[in-house]
Design a protein around this nucleic acid. Structure first.
Lengths: 205, 205
DNA sequence: TAGATTAAATAGTGATCCCTATAATAATAA
DNA sequence: TTATTATTATAGGGATCACTATTTAATCTA
């Protein structure tokens, strides 16, 4: 009898995505250096060899957990940003969504990427380069949206979109840091409102 | 023969402030969790018992190294902020000085406090509370300066100085993160210029 | 010089770090 | 049933973690 949905060999006890979800949550809370493989195997209910056969190494598991988390937390957010809304409105909703993500109940504070692996041991330099690249990519997406806003006549043609992206990138990273320190959702959204007054052409109050 | 400058007993080989300077630099670069006591003793040229007799524990050494570093890096900066200059001008110079501090040649990138111990192992929660308190205090200083600006007629009386302080606090934390990721001094100063357009009453360009 | 005082170096401690060699287990295929 | 395959559990390896008991060394005072 052949069951095409079943493979040969002993079946896995732990689904890969369930494992990644558990790992992402731990890394989100404790960071890369603050999460041990013993923490991970214990939370997943597996033994060390199972973790290594499933994910290769701690570093590779971190990469996969970040990808997993980004896909889940960032997809709707990116659609908002890149929608047909005016750029200013899209940015506002995007930043509000990040403020919500930074302060979800029953989830770790802040963003898993924005404030990850900034200071680190030398041996973790490659992990730090990875998170830095993710943050850089995030700012490039902002810049691309602002460039589009110029094309669509929503921003002056001489706007320095690189600096504008870096500015809102800093806001996002600052919000994550402050969420880690205990800031509430309303405080972050007031911060966003103020940051939006730096939008070219807007008047601050 | 009595020498008042000399104490009884075997003299220290390592000056306390030299030790704190070395420790601050390591913690600045690698963070609390990324710096081992072996790193510290090796860099100081001492053996473990000497470190513990001089500084008590790794956590206490971290506290003292942060204090040491803050006094050295932050004093001139605070004088600028609290000078008799107009609040806007003082803030601008203050932020520029932070941008300089985040990108000093031959020093670690970013700020030793702004981006420290955000994600962390549970066992380091007390260290994280300490750095969070330092960041909170830094924002309270900003708020106090903005409240003074209201008194001196430089800001509208209805200004939400708490949010204004949180906003520039986020800028400071975001700059530190981006400096860690490789941003240069000029990029950070353009970021500051843009952040300053959120100052109440200023017009963004 | 002898004793007191202080800090140094030696030589570790048990715990935890990331990771793995080996063997046992549970499914399918022949 | 037996062989094959895939995944599990057992048990631990070598390195490093933060930290310390003990001994040795270098200065002081008497």
């Amino acid at each position: 009898m052949t069951n095409p949905t079943r493979k040969r060999g002993r079946p896995r006890l732990l689904d890969r995505d369930v494992g990644l979800d558990i790992a992402a949550r731990l890394f989100w809370e404790r960071g890369y250096e603050g999460t041990s493989t013993a923490d991970l195997t214990k939370a997943m209910g597996i033994n060390p060899p199972t973790l290594y056969s499933m994910f290769g190494s701690k570093e590779e598991l971190y990469r996969r957990a970040l990808d997993f988390s980004i896909v889940r937390e960032n997809s709707r957010r990116l659609e908002i940003l890149q929608s047909s809304r005016p750029a200013y409105d899209a940015l506002k909703l995007y930043l509000y969504d990040i403020a919500d993500g930074d302060t979800q109940p029953d989830k770790p504070r802040g963003c898993i990427v924005s404030t990850a692996v900034l200071q680190h041991a030398e041996e973790n330099a490659s992990v730090a380069r990875m998170t830095a690249a993710l943050r850089e990519a995030s700012m490039q997406i902002l810049k691309a949206r602002f460039d589009r806003a110029i094309e669509e006549g929503e921003l002056p043609v001489q706007t320095d979109t690189d600096t504008l992206a870096r500015f809102y990138g800093a806001i996002i990273q600052g919000m994550s840091a402050q969420a880690c320190d205990g800031a509430c959702n309303a405080q972050l959204k007031r911060l966003v409102d103020l940051a939006l007054t730096a939008w070219p052409g807007k008047r601050s109050t």
